[in-house]
Every structure is written in structure tokens, then in C-alpha cells.
């Protein structure tokens, strides 16, 4: 038996007995980032493929959520900072070794670009919209003219953003649960799936909805595969990673993870989507909401559980 105690007494707020520096802000930030990346990815992809007519919600309307999600996400990140009035320091340097740094920069790029995207469709949504200034009208024309190039830029940026939400965590080798390369792809796929769910929910066209639902089914399949892969990797790894996996296999996160994330957030909505595609009448809001809820829970659990896993004591 091995017992380790602090004889000098140590009870630092948010560090002891378990690390809890990141609260709800970071998982929310990761969720909103993933959601925005997902919607933006499909919007730019189907613009590049020239499917504006068939997929109007994907290409035009769902994108209205993107700047909102990004601004909210950045605000959540801001709330997490403890030395808030030095926030601008984040934008004085670019540090590629620090995911927090390049991620903040990617957000800074993708937010205005997605706003430009939205502004180029605003007249289609509100035909009476008036930009008031001639220069803005010119700017709008320019965006519409170069929409394809904008789509390419946003396609690449959205993939980077989606992966970043996972890499932010996996870069921390001190937290064995996070320290796995699969987290980047896993968060990307999960983000794409929440994006697809949001589009599905908003879409009024049956064809578009059933198409996105098929895409989503594939994404859920990949996500489940990655999750199994994640745990297989842990179980075949070092003691600290086996301990990390055990939090989900009998440990304190077992129920929340397998019930809320895997069953309610992935398997059950997948079954509903299959039934829907087979012709059963199922309101699309149910699987869509479940997927969004599952994605949010997934990030909360990963951030929470990861901070508990450690090397010492």
C-alpha cells in the first residue's frame, strides 16, 4: 500500500484536492466552436460543390448561427480568464506551440469571415434590407462575386477550428485523459455532427433534411468508432491512462458518459434518424436536440474528468 499526504498542509483553491481551474466556460467555448465549425464546414462545402439551390438552409440560413456562436464562445473564453483586462495580450503574439494562442487567432479570422458570409445573404432573407452606405453595397457585391474563394478559406478554417477544439485539450500531457492524438479528430467529427444536427433542425425542405440526416448518421458512426478507439488506446497504454479510462468504466463518470453522451447523444438519435429515413413520422427536433445535448455533455465531461486525471499522488 502507498499513502501520500501533504504534511505541510496544502489546500489551494481550485487546485486541491483536484484540479478545477476550468469551469463551465471552457466546455461551452469548445461546444460553440465545434458547432460553428460544423455549420460553416457544410455551408462552404456545398457552396463549392454548387448546391446552393438544393441545400438553402445549409448554405444560407444556418450560417446565421455561426457568428453568434463564435462571439458567444469568445465571450465564454473571456469569462474564463482570471486576469481579464490583459485579454489583449492574447493578440500581441502568435505562438504556434500553444494551441490556446493559434486557436484564438483562428477564431479572430473565422468570425469576421463568417459575418461577411451572412451579410451577403441578408438581402435574400430580408428583401427590404438597406445597407445605408454605398460602400457597404459595393462590399456586398464584392463578397457575392468572390463567394467561392471565401468558401474555400472558410472550409479550411472550419476544419482547423474543429480540430483545435480537441487539440486544445490533447496538448496537455499532464492530463492523461486528454493526452491522446485521437481527441482532435474526435472533437472535429463531433462538431461536424452537431453542425449537421442544427442544419437538420432548421431545414424546411424534406430532401435537404434527409440528406443531412444521412450525413449525420455517417458522422455518428465515425464518432462511435473513435470513442471505442480512444478507450482501446487507453487500456493498452500506461498506468495513468488506464486510470483515466477507468473513470469511465466503473468510475464516477461511467453513467454520465455512457448514458448521456453515448446512448442519448449518439445511439438513440441515430436510431430515430434511421426510423425517420424509413418513413416513420418522427419530429426532426428530437434527434437534433439530442445530438446537440450529447455534444455539449461530451465536452463538459471531458473537461471535468480530464482535470481529475494526473501523474502524482
Amino acid at each position: 500500500m502507498k499513502e501520500e499526504i501533504f504534511v505541510s498542509g496544502r489546500n489551494i483553491p481550485n487546485i486541491d484536492p483536484f484540479l478545477h481551474i476550468w469551469h463551465w466556460q471552457i466546455p461551452l467555448y469548445l461546444f460553440l466552436g465545434g458547432l460553428a465549425a460544423g455549420i460553416m464546414f457544410f455551408a462552404s462545402l456545398y457552396t463549392i460543390l454548387g448546391k446552393e439551390k438544393e441545400m438553402p438552409t445549409t448554405v444560407k440560413w444556418a450560417v446565421f448561427l455561426v457568428p453568434a456562436a463564435l462571439v458567444l464562445g469568445l465571450f465564454a473564453l473571456f469569462l474564463d480568464l482570471k486576469h481579464q483586462w490583459y485579454f489583449w495580450r492574447l493578440y500581441l503574439t502568435v505562438r504556434f506551440e500553444s494551441p490556446m494562442s493559434w486557436g484564438a487567432w483562428v477564431l479572430m479570422l473565422i468570425t469576421p469571415l463568417s459575418m461577411m458570409w451572412v451579410s451577403s445573404y441578408i438581402k435574400e432573407l430580408y428583401p427590404k434590407w438597406d445597407w445605408k452606405f454605398e460602400i457597404l453595397n459595393k462590399f456586398e457585391k464584392l463578397i457575392i462575386e468572390y463567394r467561392k474563394s471565401l468558401a474555400w478559406a472558410l472550409l479550411i478554417l472550419s476544419v482547423i477550428l474543429g480540430i483545435y477544439t480537441g487539440i486544445l485539450l490533447s496538448a496537455f500531457n499532464a492530463r492523461p485523459l486528454w493526452n491522446t492524438a485521437i481527441l482532435g479528430p474526435l472533437f472535429l467529427v463531433s462538431g461536424l455532427s452537431t453542425g449537421a444536427a442544427a442544419i437538420m433542425w432548421m431545414s424546411k425542405s424534406h430532401i435537404e433534411r434527409s440528406f443531412m440526416s444521412k450525413v449525420d448518421l455517417i458522422l455518428i458512426g465515425i464518432e462511435l468508432f473513435f470513442i471505442i478507439h480512444l478507450f482501446m488506446g487507453f487500456m493498452a497504454s500506461t498506468a495513468v491512462q488506464i486510470n483515466a479510462a477507468e473513470l469511465f468504466m466503473g468510475g464516477q463518470f461511467t453513467v454520465s458518459f455512457w448514458v448521456f453522451v453515448v446512448i442519448l447523444g449518439l445511439v438513440f438519435p441515430a436510431i430515430l434518424e434511421i426510423l425517420e429515413l424509413r418513413g416513420y413520422k418522427i419530429p426532426v427536433a428530437i434527434p437534433a436536440l439530442l445530438i446537440l445535448f450529447g455534444g455539449l455533455m461530451f465536452r463538459f465531461i471531458m473537461v471535468e474528468a480530464g482535470q481529475i486525471t494526473r501523474y502524482l499522488y
Binding site: I15, L77, D80, H83, Q84, Y86, L90, M100, Q307
Partner: peptide, 8 residues
Amino acid sequence: IGCGACIE
């Protein structure tokens, strides 16, 4: 900025 990345 107090982001906590280093603590993590």
C-alpha cells in the same frame, strides 16, 4: 491573461 493553460 489568467487563462489557466499553464496550470492545466
